[in-house]
Design a protein around this nucleic acid. Structure first.
Lengths: 148, 148
DNA sequence: GATGCATCCTGTAGCAACTACAGAAACAAG
DNA sequence: CTTGTTTCTGTAGTTGCTACAGGATGCATC
């Protein structure tokens, strides 16, 4: 029976925070260690107690990471979302950079996809002397010369 | 262009192999350690000596990794390309699996791209009280209630 | 034969971004 | 008081490499 000052999210133990956010306990402590999640107050016994803010920040971190933002990006976003919340253009820059990265990765993957698809399609699947997949991987094999 | 295939490549030192394939010396030794590249013979002084086969296998590994095959896939592909070269259908299976992975990743990234693009477009870039990017990251912010 | 420099050897440690454990302490319930 | 769960710190593991440290070897030159 504890004194509940505010909402039900105050004075939370790390395990509760973990269940609430779906972030592993160890990962929460890890985020604290790398200064991504602010250090929470402790009980007299030395245990971390989290509040609503921590829930929010942790959820933010999780979502940002899921969307592929780098840990450094996340730190910056958190800072920008902090005391001076108004630097929307900085936030947009980070998001734009990340968007460009994502687009570049998509382009690369689609090239790869076409190559793989074409190759697999060429593959008879039978016991043939030549294998289309191995051919694209093996430079020598791709040429018609015999080596060594 | 047949500079690589001949007997010149026999008795190569690890540094030459590295230059020839563009794989770092340390990485070559690493591949040997994890049994991806066969152990080469040594000189009396204990130095590794590589031949044409090693060049070919290493190039194969490099290309496979560049195309996103997992180290385990590469090992399997190498085995399938080895003594019994004829298991083309097995090779195709690996490539097909990988193709599916690639397609799934593309799908994920395109979803992410749409979300980011939409969000960035909504961002005014000015000093506004609300930031579209932060909104999609921060669940609380996305709702119209202000907490804590 | 001696010197000097490049290259090589082994072994270990570092990176990211977590995850997992060990052993101890704290807390809640009966 | 005992039991059981949770939490604490610290360290080590993961994957796929990369980067040393400290020593040995190879080869050219004097």
């Amino acid at each position: 029976m504890r004194m509940v000052t505010n909402a039900r999210t105050d004075g939370m133990a790390i395990g509760e925070l973990s269940k609430l956010t779906g972030v592993h306990v160890e990962t929460i402590r890890y985020f604290e260690r790398i200064k991504m999640l602010p250090k929470p107050p402790r009980t007299t016994g030395g245990r971390r107690t989290y509040g609503a803010t921590h829930v929010r920040v942790l959820a933010f971190i999780k979502r940002s990471r899921e969307l592929g933002f780098s840990p450094d990006d996340v730190r910056t976003l958190l800072r920008l979302g902090g005391p001076d919340k108004a630097r929307c253009c900085d936030v947009r820059d980070i998001a734009t950079d990340h968007l460009n990265d994502v687009r570049a990765r998509i382009t690369d993957l689609r090239k790869l996809e076409r190559l793989l698809a074409k190759t697999v399609a060429r593959c008879t699947g039978t016991t043939a002397p030549r294998c289309a997949v191995l051919d694209i991987l093996d430079v020598q094999r791709g040429k018609s010369s015999s080596t060594t």
